[in-house]
Structure formats: structure tokens, C-alpha cells
Amino acid sequence: MNETQRKITFDNRRNRDFSKTVKARVNAYFAENNLSKFANAAMIRKTIALFTLYFGSYALIISDILPVWGMWAMCFVMGLGMAGIGFSVSHDALHGAYSANKHVNRLLGLSFDLLGANGYIWKITHNVIHHTYTNIQGHDEDLEVAGFIRLSPNTEHQPIHRLQHLLAFPAYSFATFFWVFIKDYKYFLQRDLGPYKDKKHPASEWAILIVTKLIYYGYIIAVPMLLLDITWLQFAIGFFTLHLTAGLTLGIIFQLAHIVEDTEHPVADTDDTIPEHWLVHQMATTADFAQDNKFLCWYIGGLNFQIEHHLFPRICSIHYPDIASIVRQTAREYGVPYHCYETFGDAVGSHYRTLKRFGSAEKATGDEPLQNSI
């Protein structure tokens, strides 16, 4: 494989005690309670429920026993199921956190492809690039939503950004639509991907991309049009309802993890070094929200515990509510940031204000080096 990578490094000599302590305490929690770090019975029940929500709604549509308005309603439910599977099943599996068995993770990770996305490219852009270079402009691909949306104060300001607080949420709604038809192909074809230069992809992954995309287009477009007595307009309304629902749900949840008022956007020094330990960098650039909201904790796979996920991505999300107090207390002891918004609404409001702030001026606060902000 012919690839080079601009090396951004972290000064892991700093705050080593925090890193060692938080890891030791979390490991002790699982050992003392004789718990596996992977999926438990509750996670398996949730997995079954979310797959039933998505494919059960699809089956009802294809059965042609519902009136048109009923089919439309099931498209909305499918959108919620699609987002839920992505949050709770695909995400954990692609991180290798669902099961200790890599083959189980591989199989469940294919649910991502079955939803129209590509698990291989996600593992590069999310697992490797985003998780390593969180909120570092020019490296973190999650900051590159669209040219008219500025998610980092270190991105060059354009006049259109002054409207981004109005444009962003509608843009998020098209996230899965863009993913299904454009994003994966774009990433496979472009030479540079984040810090990777001239990235080459295995022929086997190209084959999986093409085959799984055709399967998705087949069951989501061809089958309904062949079996149902509906017009193209009716199909389009249902299809867009599905993707606008899933896209908005996914887009908002993922943005609340990093693009809020308290999180930092560090700048590397002249030696391409972030002057802080990698774990502290994750704490400073990440936020939790709505930790006491039982429904959100269930539905979004613990992604409202994004701090815990970034520190321990190989632990199944079902356990994040239980280890959050350990991480929070350890952060407090060592003077490390722990950003958390009490409610979902608080986090959405903070994201909206951040969009306005980043869109209003060429240089917004928050672009200073990390050591000046914690």
C-alpha cells in the first residue's frame, strides 16, 4: 500500500497519571463486577428491537396491506430504525466493541452496508481519522460536512457561513441520502483522505462496495417500484421521508458530541504536535449530554456518552452510563475537562449558538492551542 501520512503527534508525557488512573479504574469496574466489556443481554434485546423496527416496517410496506398514508408512516418509522441501527449496532460492531468475536463484529458491521453506507470507509474516516484527530481542522473528516458549513474556527471563513445556523439543520437531513449516493464513492475515488495521501483501497473492498450498494438500491428502490401500485411521486415522498428522518437524527446527534460551546479546536504547534496527552485532548474536544434520559441512552447507543466512547471505543456502548461517573470523578481529581450538557435541548441550543459564532466572524474563539484552554 502506497500511502504517507502527515504525522500529528500528542505529548503523552503530560497527564500520564490521569490516563493510567482512568483506565485502571474502568478496568477494575468490569473485573470487580465480573462483567464483560462487550454486549450483554440488554444489548442483544435492543439489537433485535431495532432490526425489527426497520425491517418490520419495510415488510409492512412491501406487503401492500397498508393504505398509501400508512406506507408513508412506515417510511418515517424506517428512518428512525435506520438511525437506531447505525447508532447502536453498526457503530459498536465497526469499533470491534459489540463482541469479543471478530467474526460477530464483522457480520453485524455489515448492517451498515445493508443500510446503504460502507463500513470499510467509515472505519477509516471515523475510527481512525476522527477518533485520532478529533476537532483538528484539516485532519478530522467529521468537520467537513459541506463547504457552506463551518464547524471549526480554524476553517477559512466565507460569507455564506453567516447563514449556516439556518442552513446546517436542513443539510444534516440529507446526510444519509448523500452517503448512499455520493459520499462513499467520493471517498473511494479521492486521492487524499484526511492525513492520508494517495490512499489505495483493496480490490475486495471495491467489490463489497459495489455489491452492497446494488443490494441496497435493489431492496429500497427496485423492489417497491416493482411490487407496489404506487407512482414515482409517491415513492419519492416515501424515500425522502425515510432519509430525511434518518439523516436529521444522525446528523444532530453526532454534531452534539464535538461542535458545542465548551469543546476545544486545538491547533498543532510548528512541530505538528498537540501539546497535551491524547486522552486529555479527547476530553477537551468532546461533550456528553442528557445522561439521565433513559430513552436517549437506549436509542442512540450511548452516544450521548461520547466522552466515554472516545476514551474507551472498544467497550460496548451499553456500559457507558455505568462508567461515566468513574470518568467524571477521575477528571475532577486531575483537573481535566469533563463537558456535559444536562438535557438534549441544552446541547442542541449550544450547537446552534456555536454555528452562529463560527459563522459570524473570520476567527472565532476556541482556535487557540490546547494548553491555553484547559
Rank of each mutant, 00 (worst) to 15 (best):
V223C: 13
I220D: 03
N105D: 11
Y216W: 10
S204F: 06
H157F: 13
V327Q: 13
P67E: 02
Y196D: 01
H95S: 09
V89R: 04
H309I: 06
G359T: 07
C75P: 00
I253R: 01
A257C: 12
D272A: 13
D64M: 12
K294Y: 03
W232K: 04
F169N: 09
A284W: 04
F305P: 00
I374W: 13
Q329N: 13
A97M: 12
K294G: 11
I307Q: 02
Q255G: 05
V104S: 08
F181Q: 05
D92H: 10
N372M: 15
A100N: 11
F10K: 06
F51I: 12
L226S: 08
I85W: 09
Q158I: 02
L248I: 09
N27C: 08
G247K: 02
R328Y: 00
I124F: 01
E368V: 02
G218H: 07
A347H: 05
M225L: 15
E362G: 15
V145Y: 06
N372L: 15
T285Y: 05
T21M: 06
V22L: 03
E261Q: 10
H281D: 10
K7C: 04
P313I: 07
D140E: 06
E141A: 09
F305H: 13
G86T: 08
I208T: 11
H309E: 04
R13H: 14
T249D: 00
V260N: 01
Y320G: 01
F55Y: 15
A146W: 01
G349A: 07
G345A: 14
I274A: 00
G84P: 11
C316S: 00
F38E: 03
F239M: 08
M82Q: 12
H201E: 07
V104A: 15
I274Q: 04
I124Q: 03
G335N: 06
L107H: 05
V89S: 07
P313C: 12
F76R: 02
A73N: 07
V348K: 00
F148A: 13
Y98S: 06
D184H: 11
K102A: 14
F38C: 04
L53P: 01
S325G: 07
L250H: 03
A93P: 03
H277N: 15
T21E: 14
D140L: 00
T245P: 05
P369A: 13
H157T: 06
G81V: 09
S373R: 13
L108E: 00
C340F: 04
P159Q: 09
A207L: 15
W206L: 13
N27L: 01
S90E: 09
S19P: 00
H351A: 15
Q306W: 09
D269S: 10
F38T: 08
D262E: 12
D272Q: 11
H351S: 11
D64N: 14
P313L: 11
I210E: 08
P153M: 12
V223W: 10
L53E: 03
V327Y: 05
G84S: 07
T47E: 13
Y217R: 00
S90W: 03
A347Y: 03
W179C: 05
L60Q: 07
T9V: 04
D198S: 11
H161T: 06
